[in-house]
Amino acid sequence: MRAELDADTLLQVILVLVLVWLVLEVLDATVDLLGSLLGLLPNLIGLVIAVLIVLWLLDRI
């Protein structure tokens, strides 16, 4: 009565847990990539503003 689970059922449970772990790792990598891209956004906006000011001073726009 100690082993109520078959070996196949136990392997399926382990496989599902490994798949969940892999999906969580992929989501974590995606969120990290998105966060790093959004972290660069203020610097990019500042660069665009600086370029626009220089172009305005040089009468290019």
Results as ranks from 00 to 15, higher is better:
residue 1 M to T: 03
residue 1 M to D: 04
residue 1 M to R: 04
residue 3 A to D: 11
residue 3 A to W: 02
residue 3 A to V: 05
residue 5 L to C: 01
residue 5 L to Y: 05
residue 7 A to T: 11
residue 7 A to R: 14
residue 7 A to D: 13
residue 9 T to E: 15
residue 9 T to D: 06
residue 10 L to Y: 04
residue 11 L to Q: 12
residue 11 L to Y: 05
residue 13 V to L: 12
residue 14 I to V: 15
residue 14 I to K: 15
residue 14 I to S: 06
residue 15 L to V: 02
residue 15 L to T: 13
residue 16 V to A: 11
residue 16 V to L: 08
residue 16 V to D: 08
residue 16 V to Y: 03
residue 17 L to S: 09
residue 19 L to K: 11
residue 19 L to G: 08
residue 19 L to T: 04
residue 19 L to F: 02
residue 21 W to I: 08
residue 21 W to V: 09
residue 21 W to P: 00
residue 23 V to Y: 02
residue 24 L to D: 07
residue 26 V to D: 05
residue 27 L to G: 00
residue 29 A to W: 06
residue 31 V to H: 03
residue 32 D to L: 13
residue 32 D to A: 14
residue 33 L to A: 11
residue 33 L to M: 09
residue 34 L to P: 00
residue 34 L to V: 11
residue 35 G to N: 13
residue 35 G to V: 01
residue 36 S to N: 09
residue 36 S to Y: 08
residue 36 S to M: 11
residue 36 S to L: 09
residue 37 L to Y: 09
residue 38 L to W: 10
residue 39 G to A: 15
residue 40 L to E: 15
residue 40 L to N: 13
residue 41 L to S: 12
residue 41 L to G: 01
residue 42 P to K: 01
residue 42 P to D: 01
residue 43 N to F: 12
residue 46 G to V: 09
residue 47 L to A: 11
residue 49 I to F: 07
residue 51 V to Y: 10
residue 52 L to G: 01
residue 54 V to K: 01
residue 54 V to N: 00
residue 54 V to C: 00
residue 56 W to Q: 09
residue 56 W to A: 14
residue 57 L to T: 04
residue 57 L to D: 04
residue 58 L to H: 02
residue 58 L to Y: 02
residue 58 L to S: 03
residue 59 D to N: 13
residue 60 R to P: 00
residue 61 I to A: 07
residue 61 I to Y: 04
